[in-house]
């Protein structure tokens, strides 16, 4: 499993986390190249369906990043994200996903180092978990 290079999707909010990722870049923090960022205006824009869809389409993990609670550019979006995230995470665990396949975290625009750390740790965790158990190619349908 050591060769396993997971493919990870990050949803980052425009105002804090995407800027935090920029800050990490400007500061030249090095991190594993497994993540792809999709920019959304607010972490509250992330539809849980998108997360479930990503995980069932074959991505190994999803990370949603938003402003720290209380700092949302839209005042309260990330509180919605947090609630949805908790419910979704529990649902995914109940359905047999490892608890870290989906994560929510908070990174501010100034926290380049934190961004690098969160991403690096996340990649490491997913590497340790191995590929997601839902892999489309392995399964050709129950009744087919």
């Amino acid at each position: 499993m050591s060769d396993f290079e997971p493919k990870i999707l990050i949803f980052a909010c425009n105002w804090c986390s995407y800027a935090g990722a920029d800050m990490a870049g400007v500061s030249r923090y090095q991190m594993p190249p497994n993540c792809r960022i999709i920019r959304v205006m607010c972490s509250a824009r992330v539809r849980p369906e998108q997360v479930i869809s990503a995980l069932t389409q074959g991505l190994d993990a999803v990370l949603v990043l938003g402003c720290h609670p209380g700092d949302c550019h839209y005042t309260e979006g990330n509180y919605l994200t947090r609630r949805r995230g908790i419910m979704l995470k529990n649902l995914l665990e109940t359905m047999g996903f490892e608890k870290n396949r989906f994560q929510v975290n908070w990174v501010s625009a100034a926290e380049g180092a934190r961004f690098a750390q969160v991403v690096s740790e996340f990649v490491e965790e997913i590497k340790a978990l191995g590929p997601s158990h839902v892999s489309r190619d392995k399964d050709t349908g129950t009744h087919a």
Partner: peptide, 14 residues
Amino acid sequence: DLADKIFYHAVRAY
């Protein structure tokens, strides 16, 4: 397939 069903049931429940 399993992925489709997981998607369906997870989203339905959510």
